[in-house]
């Protein structure tokens, strides 16, 4: 579904990484780790077409993101649920509208009512449904971002440090949601520093852990 072949990326200075290949197949579950600044967020952005590689190719469902028309990219993004590191909400709208936004822009807002109550309950935000994002804590925003990422029932879920600001119990709950979606056949890719999260995931599903270090993507060793 998402395919990176021999990808390199540079913001203008030196190359952040190069010769990187990765394939997200249905039902796969990947963790991406690495030191801060290694390029995890950049790699995820390449996966949902927010950036295009400086060399190599990224293909979404067989179509190259380099030179992809904006509308084509938009349609592909509806199949990928993303939890952004900085959440990316519309601050003037209440939480419910933010969570339902992918449905709204796809012209399917009327379907939101069917999913919203369960989804908000799952991430523990039912009480805050009418609040606007700036009125929420960092952890609450991350939970809302996860709810938004899955509301379209996407084929791929990409999350950038989704448990960075939430406590242990909540991180287990979010993980349980992702594991459940993975069991339904969705591909999951999570960038995280949280080794405990990776360990609990391993206890539930087959997980591949990748490490971004020294400009290379390597399979993480047995230390996990």
């Amino acid at each position: 579904m998402i395919e990176l072949r021999d990808v390199a990326y540079s913001y203008g200075g030196g190359e952040l990484f190069s010769g990187l290949s990765l394939s997200l197949a249905p039902g796969s579950f990947h963790f991406l780790t690495g030191p801060s600044g290694a390029g995890k967020t950049t790699l995820l952005k390449l996966c949902y077409g927010d950036l295009v590689p400086t060399s190599g190719a990224v293909a979404l469902w067989g179509e190259d993101t380099t030179g992809m028309a904006r509308d084509g990219l938009a349609l592909n993004r509806r199949r990928i649920g993303v939890v952004h590191q900085d959440c990316q909400f519309l601050d003037h709208l209440p939480l419910t509208d933010n969570v339902a936004l992918p449905l709204t822009v796809a012209g399917r807002h009327q379907e939101a009512e069917a999913y919203l109550p369960d989804l908000l309950a799952w991430v523990g935000l039912t009480r805050h449904a009418k609040r606007r994002p700036p009125e929420l804590s960092g952890g609450e925003r991350q939970r809302a971002a996860l709810a938004r990422a899955v509301i379209m029932s996407p084929e791929v879920i990409i999350a950038d440090e989704p448990t960075g600001n939430v406590d242990w119990d909540m991180s287990q709950r979010l993980l349980a949601l992702l594991v459940e979606l993975n069991r339904m056949g969705k591909a999951v890719l999570i960038a995280t520093h949280d080794m405990n999260l990776i360990r609990s995931a391993k206890a539930q599903v087959a997980v591949r852990t990748l490490r971004l270090k020294d400009r290379q993507l390597i399979a993480a060793g047995a230390e996990l």
Binding site: Y48, D50, R70, D71, A74, L75, R77, R78, V82, H84, Q88, F89, L90, L101, P102, V105, A106, G107, R148, M152
Partner: peptide, 15 residues
């Protein structure tokens, strides 16, 4: 920023 968010969640140009 609003436009960026809309595009990230899959809004087409026309929308």
């Amino acid at each position: 920023q609003v436009i960026r968010v809309l595009r990230l969640v899959g809004a087409r140009d026309a929308y």
